[in-house]
């Protein structure tokens, strides 16, 4: 009995470690290769570098220097920040106001409008590409950051409203009612009470939206023209650099640094957001 238990326990450990190892392997390969000199990358598999990890000639930063300046990933990095920060803050703001209204204000058609928001959550954003591009060309904001922020805001809103509504509508009603009786306007209640109390929900959604924008290819490809973001630039490089793996791997890592930092710093909120968002697809 004890032996049987021991066998099954060691099987579990083996399986867990093997799965986690296999899952990480592809990323580790890219990370290792991005620090190897061009000739090494070309002539031998990346795992060979780990045989002599303490020899200095095995490692280099040159790939990063090259890819950031010569291949324009540095500029793309800045563009990505300029796209991502406002495109995260805008939908949160707009959604928080709307979620408050859906939860605590009375107006005609409220339930119908909320049903529309839920319905829009699963609409593929592909529907927007042709009509919005035409609209942008007519109004002259095609290719601007503003156009891209607004597009991301529109696409992110249904989920943002839904998540924030779930949280804001659960806040204690007494708190909001008594503030109103004391003469606070909806605006004050929202700014002073609801917003500070909703920080956890806002943080969860913010991480989501941030990662989703940072990683987006399709929307930037269609609406942003010359100011290329990391994903667009990297996808071009996969075509033009072909087999220059030392550069491609470094490029891939440049595009992943910020999401990785966000992930490790804010993992708790990230998981919480995933759980809240999955309640209803």
């Amino acid at each position: 009995m004890r032996i049987q238990r021991l066998v099954s326990r060691s099987f579990v450990h083996f399986a867990v470690i093997a799965i986690a190892f296999l899952w990480t392997l592809p990323t580790v390969g890219v990370l290792v290769s991005s620090f190897r000199p061009e000739n090494d990358v070309k002539n031998s598999g990346w795992w060979n570098a780990l045989k002599h990890p303490f020899e200095e000639s095995v490692w280099t930063f040159k790939n990063y220097a090259d890819v950031i300046s010569a291949n324009g990933l540095g500029e793309a990095f800045v563009n990505t920040l300029v796209v991502t920060i406002p495109a995260t803050i805008l939908p949160i703001t707009v959604a928080a106001f709307a979620a408050y209204a859906f939860a605590w204000m009375k107006f005609p058609g409220r339930d119908w409008l909320f049903a529309m928001v839920i319905g829009l959550m699963v609409v593929p954003l592909q529907v927007a590409l042709i009509p919005i591009l035409r609209l942008y060309t007519q109004t002259g904001i095609a290719g601007t950051f503003l156009g891209l922020w607004l597009a991301h805001t529109g696409f992110g809103l249904p989920l943002a409203i839904y998540l924030l509504y779930n949280y804001i509508s659960q806040l204690p009603g007494d708190l909001i009612e008594s503030a109103k009786i004391d003469g606070a306007s909806d605006f004050t209640v929202f700014m002073r009470i609801v917003l500070p109390l909703s920080t956890p929900a806002i943080a969860s959604f913010a991480i989501f939206q941030f990662l989703w924008i940072w990683n987006d290819l399709l929307v930037s490809l269609v609406f942003l023209g010359t100011n290329k973001v990391l994903t667009v630039k990297l996808s071009e490089l996969t075509g033009s650099l072909g087999n220059k793996w030392h550069l491609l791997t470094a490029g891939a890592f440049v595009s992943m640094i910020v999401p990785l930092a966000v992930f490790f710093a804010l993992q708790r909120y990230f998981v919480r957001g995933l759980l809240a968002g999955s309640v209803k697809g």
Binding site: V94, A95, F97, A98, Y100, A101, F102, M105, K106, F107, L113, M116, V117, L120, V123, L125, V127, A128, L129, I130, P131, I132, L135, L150, A151, T153, G154, F155, L157, P158, I161, S185, D186, F187, F190
Partner: peptide
């Protein structure tokens, strides 16, 4: 007042998802 709170969200949803 509710128009100020939900108006922008609805406008964006209509422009970017319903109309398209």
């Amino acid at each position: 007042r509710p128009v100020i709170f939900v108006g922008p969200a609805l406008a964006l949803l209509i422009i970017y998802l319903v109309y398209p």
